[in-house]
Amino acid sequence: MSVVDIMLPFYGDPALLRRAVESVRAQRCTDWRMTVVDDGYPDPSIGPWFAGLGDERIRYRRNPARLGAQSNNRWCLEAVELEYFVMMGADDLMLPGYLDRVLALHDRYPSAAVVQPGVEVIDGEDRVVRTLADSVKRLLSPGRGVRELGGEALAASLLHGNWLYNPSLCWRSSALKTIAVPESTDVFDLALPLEVVSAGGTILVDDEVCFRYRRYRTSDSGSAAISGDRFAEEARFFRSAETAMVARGWPRAAKAARLHFSSRLNAACRLPGAVLRRDTAALRLLAGHLAG
Score class of each variant (00 low, 15 high):
Ser2Met: 12
Val4Met: 10
Met7Leu: 15
Tyr11Asp: 08
Gly12Ile: 10
Gly12Trp: 10
Asp13Ala: 12
Asp13Cys: 11
Arg18Tyr: 09
Ser23Ile: 03
Thr30Cys: 03
Trp32Cys: 04
Thr35Gln: 13
Thr35Val: 09
Thr35Asn: 10
Thr35Arg: 15
Val36Trp: 03
Val37Gln: 14
Gly40His: 10
Gly40Tyr: 06
Tyr41Phe: 15
Pro42Ala: 12
Pro42Ile: 09
Pro48Lys: 08
Gly52Ile: 03
Gly52Leu: 01
Glu56Ser: 03
Ile58Met: 08
Arg59Ala: 03
Arg61Ile: 02
Arg61Tyr: 00
Arg62Asp: 10
Asn63Ser: 05
Gln70His: 11
Asn73Gln: 13
Trp75Gln: 14
Ala79Thr: 15
Glu81Val: 12
Val86Phe: 02
Gly89Lys: 04
Met94Gln: 00
Met94Trp: 00
Pro96Val: 00
Val102His: 10
Val102Arg: 08
Leu103Asp: 12
Ala104Ile: 02
His106Met: 13
Tyr109Thr: 04
Tyr109Gly: 04
Pro110Cys: 13
Ser111Tyr: 00
Val119Thr: 00
Glu120Trp: 02
Glu125Pro: 00
Arg127Val: 11
Val128Met: 09
Arg130Ala: 06
Thr131Pro: 03
Ser135Asp: 14
Val136Asp: 14
Leu139Glu: 08
Leu140Met: 07
Val146Arg: 12
Glu148Gly: 01
Glu152Trp: 08
Leu154Met: 04
Leu154Trp: 06
Leu154Gln: 07
Ala156Phe: 11
Ser157Ala: 14
Leu159Lys: 12
Leu159Glu: 13
Tyr165Leu: 00
Tyr165Glu: 06
Pro167Thr: 08
Trp171Gly: 07
Ser173Asn: 13
Leu176Cys: 05
Thr178Gly: 10
Ile179His: 06
Glu183Met: 00
Val187Lys: 06
Asp189Ala: 00
Leu190Asn: 03
Ala191His: 15
Ser198Ala: 11
Ala199Gln: 06
Ile203Phe: 02
Ile203Val: 09
Val205Met: 11
Asp206Ile: 02
Asp206Met: 05
Asp207Met: 02
Phe211Val: 05
Arg212Ala: 01
Thr218Asn: 14
Ser219Cys: 05
Asp220Leu: 15
Asp220Val: 15
Ser221Asn: 11
Ser223Lys: 15
Ala224Leu: 15
Ala225Val: 13
Asp229Val: 01
Glu233Thr: 06
Glu233Gln: 14
Arg236Cys: 04
Arg236Ser: 02
Arg239Asn: 09
Arg239Gly: 02
Thr243Ser: 09
Val246Pro: 05
Trp250Glu: 12
Arg252Cys: 10
Arg252Phe: 04
Ala253Pro: 09
Ala254Tyr: 04
Ala257Met: 12
Ala257Lys: 00
Ser263Trp: 04
Ser263Asp: 07
Arg264Thr: 14
Asn266Arg: 07
Ala267Cys: 14
Ala267Trp: 07
Ala268Thr: 01
Ala274Arg: 14
Leu276Arg: 15
Thr280Asp: 09
Ala287Gln: 13
His289Cys: 05
His289Gln: 08
